[in-house]
Design a protein around this nucleic acid. Structure first.
Lengths: 159, 159
DNA sequence: AGGCTGACTTGCGGATAGCTAAGTCAGCCG
DNA sequence: CGGCTGACTTAGCTATCCGCAAGTCAGCCT
């Protein structure tokens, strides 16, 4: 974790995946929309009611998320109803599940109220609680301090 | 994933860990501060320069994060210098690593520029890339659709 | 044809965030 | 003792977000 970090001011963090991710899903209401979408909500007024945000704000957020490719606006038709549109997760959107799960885990542990968590996510097959954990591609669990940070191809070097 | 979700309007999402987590670390600049803190940054003007936010905004964000117990303001003294303060991660702050990692993974995959990621996080022992993944406490990997959502003790029921 | 409903859009006013520029303050150094 | 530096704070301005209230629009239903 040291070669690159010792020389911390020789590179710029401007090209940062975290910053770009936060530009897309980095506001409170956007993340709550993603929570709802991952729980299965699809229709405009359900989002409005369940997220607790006004209609104008919701319309703007959903438009941004569709523009970013996280949600897709899909026409559908219930029998005897006219055509409407619903907001479905794309693959890009579904892959935010680890982010939302990590956030929920952290909130449950560090920002819960006295009553405890309101929702429990468990593994369907075995019933045990689900957590977001860090693992390397060789399958090892990662604990604090076992991480090396190295320069990637997109790193912008200074000076 | 259905008992509770079928009856989606019988409960309120007001008491939500994700919402409370986002209240604490849910703005772009706050998350970038956490990125920096997890990379080892501790001093005020390093945060200002590396996060790319103005001094007043940084002072306000750091004060909030200290108030939330994510950072601690610790006095230190370099030889020949006067006493200063630095911002160290608390345990509560360090445990945001899965959140930041999940966000970076997602950003690398879905919001990278042409050059590719700027940083690579690898397992110190074996060199393989690190990812945030979902797993249940019995050790099973979770793939899409294997999640049950159930009511927790803090759920607020309506009607 | 006219009503109704879901899904928005428009208008307006207040709160919040952020920027730049400039000021403050503590305390080691010469 | 006066300067310098790191760490902020204050001031003033702009930009954005967000809520509420009201208006719009499409198209099935009667």
């Amino acid at each position: 974790m040291d070669d690159l970090l010792d020389d911390r001011d020789s590179w710029s963090p401007a090209n940062c995946s975290i910053g770009r991710a936060m530009d897309i899903v980095g506001s409170r209401s956007t993340m709550l929309i993603m929570r709802e979408a991952l729980l299965g909500t699809r229709r405009f007024d359900d989002f409005v009611r369940r997220v607790g945000v006004g209609e104008p704000a919701m319309a703007a957020r959903l438009k941004e998320l569709v523009g970013a490719g996280v949600l897709e606006r899909i026409p559908y038709r219930e029998p005897g109803q006219r055509t409407r549109h619903e907001y479905q997760l794309t693959r890009k959107g579904r892959e935010l599940l680890p982010v939302v799960t990590a956030l929920r885990n952290w909130g449950d542990t560090w920002a819960a109220d006295d009553a405890g968590p309101s929702l429990l996510a468990t593994h369907r097959d075995c019933g045990h609680p689900i957590r977001a954990v860090l693992r390397c591609e060789a399958g090892h669990d990662i604990s604090d301090g076992e991480i090396d940070i190295a320069a990637g191809p997109g790193l912008i070097r200074l000076g």
